[in-house]
Write a protein that binds this DNA or RNA. Structure first.
Lengths: 355, 355
DNA sequence: TTGAAAGCGCTAACAA
DNA sequence: TTGTTAGCGCTTTCAA
């Protein structure tokens, strides 16, 4: 392991000052001859500028952090691949953390990133707005992906706030703008409202009236869209949530099927929940789509493997990651606008007419 | 965004020298009173040591790099989760890169890590031994996970080398030691030999004689184990490879089924290949397990969702990642030994007697 | 266009 | 036990 050449080595070998080397290598002004000589020497010495020195000098680490709840959720893996693709093309490192959907772990990871002076972050958030305040106050450039932090429960119980949110979800037909946020953070999300609405309408068209929704952490916007799509009166018993683990998703699905045998269709808010729904249905001898129709949010490779293949609402996970990375990188100066990407209903075989 | 306190601020506020602060915070010796005072001031100032300064000083970035071919391959995601879990408990950052199975991208990412002075790396390698030499020469502590770099093709064609490798695979019944390597790098792998052997024996027991193997990049040890398990004469036409993409895996599977309608069982070398096999079988109207029995390497959540649920050779992806991270972190001084973890045949419903 | 020099925040060698 | 000091490799004024 020979020692790597430093800028000083290059400067000496080229007979110039270190400042000149630095300039040449970062595209500053220099006479053609000097530039050439420096470049030649640098190449000859196999010089690679150390990010360490640069980082300390600029008091910031390049690249970006990426926080997701769980990589074995294929949607998050797709998202991560998108982020990585963008980062790679920019030559920037990505520091990854998995939060398990736990706000506390999320906070710890943010602390770690702060310690590393990573000041750009893409996150599929688990904590609420309150828990994100510190990161923002510390000056991080944050972009949320896939979902937004929940409004703290104190406000959540506030009827006025709920009313505002509901209102936002009711008006207009244009792609839903991100709901009003106290946090001024750009985000990249799918158009959940339209995705859910399309799914519900499709099921309606097949004759389904008792449609259930199984959600996980962070699926509250989808749940709200579901409430809106089914319209009043909303049967709240048909809306259930898991806590994020596969076990709890299964429990939620299984409990739902057992307590409400009258339901004829289910919308799963994410692929882990769809998985759970398929499993629970089979365990209870419910045939898909004969006994129950199923639409899953997220298109994942295995959706096609199921028998029957699953009808899904596809969201462009990879694109979302890529766009988020672009946002967080090109955040020079003016605040980037949030982006909402379209979803697509892919009809396969898991939905049928109501019997 | 207020400026963060530095060690100097703490030193001044506590009325001590910066060295003392550094010592106290890294567990060095100090008088109880001094320690207490420093700690108090640090807490009061919300001081967090900057990794930037420390890194530059020690000429190395903490944490570790992690290179995988593709996160949407659920096995890699599991592995990554294991690495992240270990890193988190150690408070260390993980810099992630996805190589798409391309040695060139892999090399570029290694270059990026070198630039960041990340000198510990866990990799599911894509390049061959030759392409890994630079990283090692640069002084990186590397641990390979899941598989080892291929022997460069020049040597691969060398009959002597092949003979040695074959020999290694033939003798003994103990968990296969990692094959002899020119690269002296520890690794964490599953006991592929025993896993494949168990799968093949199981199929044999069901009466299958024409058993095929579908592999992907990095599955050559599994293929070799397969050859060993089926024994002479090996029908090489029954051993096919994809290049890593889902499309090519599908093409390989589909081609195999069409060119050899006489086969009655298939072992897929990884979950992406298993996916492809299920898809191709269905497309060709082959019923599983009636027309063809299927065993897939990797246990992934969706294996249970298939109809019938897939019989798999499970390897402990998460554990493998965790162990790899331990190895690369505790690589203080003496070289850590490689570890081989056991696999487990999980019988579900995708295998049946030969008809 | 160029070079000298001043740090960025930290640790470790050395002195006291 | 403590403080002083010399850098780690780089960028960026500031002069020349």
């Amino acid at each position: 392991m020979e020692k790597r050449a430093t800028i000083k080595d290059v400067a000496e070998a080229a007979g110039v000052g270190v400042a000149t080397v630095s300039r040449v290598l970062s595209g500053g002004s220099a006479s053609p001859q000097t530039r050439e000589r420096v470049l030649a020497v640098a190449a000859q010495l196999d010089y690679r500028p150390s990010a360490l020195g640069r980082n300390l000098r600029q008091r910031r680490t390049g690249g970006m952090g990426l926080l997701v709840p769980d990589l074995t959720d294929t949607f998050h893996a797709q998202l991560a691949e998108g982020v990585l693709a963008c980062a790679r093309s920019a030559g920037e490192p990505v520091v990854l953390g998995s939060t398990a959907g736990d706000p506390e772990q999320e906070s710890e990871l943010i602390g770690m990133l702060l310690e590393q002076s990573v000041d750009r972050l893409i996150a599929v958030p688990s904590g609420d707005e309150e828990s994100w305040a510190p990161a923002l106050r510390a000056g991080m450039t944050v972009v949320f992906a896939d979902r937004l932090p929940a409004v703290p429960s104190a406000d959540d119980d506030d009827p006025a706030v709920r009313a505002v949110n509901d209102l936002m979800l009711l008006d207009g037909a244009a792609p839903a703008p991100a709901r009003p946020r106290s946090l001024d953070v750009p985000s990249v999300t799918a158009d959940d409202r339209s995705g859910i609405r399309t799914a519900v309408r499709y099921l309606r068209g097949l004759g389904h009236r008792r449609i259930a929704f199984i959600g996980g952490p962070g699926h509250d916007r989808r749940a709200a869209a579901f409430r809106e799509a089914v319209g009043e009166p909303v049967d709240e018993e048909l809306i259930v949530f898991g806590t994020g683990s596969r076990d709890s998703a299964y429990a939620a699905a299984s409990g739902l099927f057992q307590s409400r045998p009258d339901l004829s269709a289910v919308v799963a808010g994410g692929n882990v929940l769809g998985e759970a729904a398929v499993l629970a249905a089979r365990e209870l001898d419910l045939r898909v789509p004969r006994d129950v129709s199923l639409i899953m949010y997220d298109d994942v490779p295995w959706a096609e493997l199921c028998s029957p293949p699953l009808t899904v609402v596809a969201q462009p996970g990879r694109d979302m990651g890529y766009r988020a990375a672009e946002l967080v990188l090109r955040s020079g100066g003016r605040r980037p606008r949030s982006v909402v990407l379209p979803t697509q209903l892919i009809v396969r075989g898991s939905c049928g007419p109501r019997h």
